[in-house]
Every structure is written in structure tokens, then in C-alpha cells.
């Protein structure tokens, strides 16, 4: 393992210290907790997210005016505990309640559920929006359901804008549930991530192999192949996505190319260029584009492609609104 760290068990705490030092005008840490709170807690419904660490800049990088009120950081790739989430909820509540944006993993769901119950015992109204955009996993009653991945950042941004506009908790919950159903993501990995405390890669791919459908914690995907060109990868991922959307000719869509950690921006732009060509064949309109490392998986090489089907121009406007956060850009 080759990493710039000190003690693998202290990585999360040391990262948080550094992060809060770098962005001290925007965020602060709650003492004794791994919770990062916006300095600008507005008079609105609070928006809290979080999950395992190792996905930076998610989620703490999206804390700030117009996006999240707080982010709760778990151990690397492991959900934060209920007491931590509860602190995030308490710090974000202004009497109008708090909306939790949770990626759909059993650990996250159970821990955030318990936090919700604890907060309700303290008379804070809490609702949850579950993000499950990863179409690599089949959604059936026989699995824990689809996973939440990069599409989560669209939920943060759009609901962040709506919360700023003064929407109520109930409205945000309904808008969020509807939004999540129109966001789909599929990833491809070239190498696995190495969790510092584990010290070795989570899975092994040969030097010339890639794997489609890998999750952001290294969950196995649906197909291994010999390395392809960007064009072929774009074709595969767009094809897979078009099976879960019926692209409408007059429909408006947004695209996110998300780097998983070790893939250069150069390659992400090359890939976006191919995605653009693939999508042109469906005659759909791309009304919004974003490229970069937003929901990473430590040092995994690879990327994911997210498509959102907009319900109307308000969602596009919500994505384009200015925010003051460390990492939205």
C-alpha cells in the first residue's frame, strides 16, 4: 500500500481536521463528533447527508449555503453511527425539520433510521430520501435494493436549492422521492480501491481488464472484459442506461461524468465527448453537464456515468444556481 497517511486508524479524523482548516470560512466541525456543519445555517429546512468516508469530496464538500446543512462522516466505507447523525440533525434544525439524504445501503439505512427515531424523541421532525441510482444492481425483493452512488450529488444540489427557496419538509420529501426515480448511474472500474485499514485492493483486475457495474465500495459489477476504448465504454454504459430510461426526443436530460478517484480529468473529458456522440443518436437534449471527481472511491480508477431526466426547467435552474460550498464548483 502506497498512501500519504500517518496511522490508518486516524485517517478520517486527520482528513476532517485538514478539511475544516482549508474551508474554515464555510464550515466547522462539531466538537467530539465527525460532523461538518455549514457556518450559514439558514432559516429553512435542514438538509443532512453523509455516509462512509473515502468518497471525497462527498459529502462534506457539499456543505454550505444552498446545499447541505451538515455532513456526517463514517469510517472509511462504513456508515456513520446514529449518535453522530443525530448531532448533524440537531445542528441543522431550525424548527422546520430536517431532511436526510441517504444512499441505499443497509448499514446507512439502519443507522440513519435510528438517528431519525432519536431526533423524533427530541421533537425534531425528520424525513428521509433514499437515493438508489446505481442500475448495476437489480431491484427486487430478493436484494437490499439498488445502491446509491454519484447521482446523490444531484439530489443534494436540487433539494438544496428547493430548501433555500423555503419549501417545507413535506414538500422536499415528495420532490426528493420523485427526483430520485429519474436519476440513474452506471460505473466502470479499471482498478480497485485500497482501504487504508485493509492495506490491499478490495478486488483484483488484470492489467488489461475492466469491470462494468462496480459499486463505490468495490462491490462486484456485472461484466469483466479486456480493456476497451473510451468510445466502446461509452457505448456500453449509455446502452445500459437507455435500458432503464426511455429517452424521449423532446425530453431534457442532465449528464454527470464522475471520476472514481484515480482517473485523470483528461480521460473524463475524452469519455464525455464519446457519451455526447452516443446520446446524439437518441436525439435527446442535454440541458446540463458536469464532469469531475464528486463521488469517489478512494484510489479506484474508473468513472461513472449518471443521467438525470428533468421534470422541467426548475430542476435545471436548481442545478445551475450559485452555491457557496467547498467542492460543488
Amino acid at each position: 500500500m502506497k498512501k500519504i497517511i500517518n496511522d490508518s486508524s486516524r485517517v478520517v479524523d486527520e482528513m476532517i481536521e485538514g478539511f475544516c482548516f482549508a474551508h474554515q470560512e464555510l464550515v466547522k466541525k462539531i466538537d467530539d463528533y465527525r460532523v461538518i456543519v455549514s457556518r450559514d445555517i439558514e432559516n429553512q429546512v435542514g438538509l443532512v447527508s453523509g455516509g462512509g468516508s473515502g468518497h471525497e469530496p462527498a459529502h462534506a464538500g457539499f456543505v454550505g449555503e444552498g446545499m447541505l446543512s451538515a455532513a456526517v462522516c463514517g469510517e472509511v466505507f462504513s456508515s456513520p453511527t446514529p449518535d453522530q447523525v443525530l448531532e448533524g440533525i440537531k445542528a441543522s434544525d431550525n424548527g422546520q425539520g430536517v431532511l436526510l439524504v441517504v444512499k441505499n445501503y443497509t448499514g446507512d439505512v439502519l443507522n440513519f433510521d435510528m438517528a431519525k427515531e432519536l431526533a423524533e424523541m427530541e421533537d425534531i421532525a425528520v424525513e428521509t430520501v433514499l437515493v438508489d441510482d446505481d442500475i448495476a444492481v437489480e431491484d427486487s425483493t430478493y436484494t437490499a435494493g439498488k445502491r446509491g452512488v454519484a447521482g446523490t450529488i444531484f439530489v443534494h444540489k436540487i433539494l438544496g436549492a428547493y430548501a433555500r427557496q423555503g419549501k417545507t419538509l413535506k414538500e422536499l420529501k415528495e420532490l426528493g422521492d420523485d427526483l430520485v426515480g429519474r436519476i440513474k448511474t452506471i460505473g466502470v472500474a479499471l482498478t480497485a480501491a485500497t482501504v487504508p485499514e485493509v492495506g490491499k485492493p478490495g478486488f483484483n483486475l488484470k492489467a488489461d481488464e475492466l469491470e462494468y457495474g462496480v459499486g463505490i465500495h468495490g462491490e462486484p459489477g456485472y461484466l469483466r472484459e479486456t480493456l476497451k476504448t473510451s468510445k466502446d465504454i461509452a457505448k456500453e454504459l449509455v446502452e445500459k442506461l437507455s435500458q432503464s430510461f426511455t429517452f424521449k426526443e423532446d425530453g431534457q436530460y442532465g449528464v454527470l461524468v464522475n471520476g472514481l478517484g484515480a482517473t485523470p480529468l483528461m480521460e473524463q473529458y475524452v469519455f464525455l465527448n464519446d457519451v455526447k456522440k452516443e446520446l446524439a443518436e437518441s436525439n435527446m437534449q442535454i440541458a446540463y453537464t458536469k464532469v469531475g471527481n464528486y463521488m469517489t472511491s478512494l484510489d479506484m480508477a474508473g468513472l461513472s456515468l449518471t443521467i438525470i431526466e428533468f421534470s422541467g426547467t426548475t430542476e435545471i435552474a436548481a442545478l445551475n444556481e450559485e452555491v457557496t460550498t467547498p467542492s460543488w464548483g
Binding site: G52, G74, E75, S78, S79, P80, T81, P82, D83, Q84, Y105, T106, G107, L110, N111, D113, M114
Partner: peptide, 15 residues
């Protein structure tokens, strides 16, 4: 267990 484990097993053992 609830405050230290995280993951799925923390809330389950804790509950």
C-alpha cells in the same frame, strides 16, 4: 454497539 460499530451490524446488535 450503537455508537461505535457503524455498518449494518451496529444498529442490529444495538437494537
Amino acid at each position: 454497539m450503537i455508537s461505535k460499530v457503524g455498518g449494518a451490524s451496529g444498529p442490529l446488535y444495538g437494537s
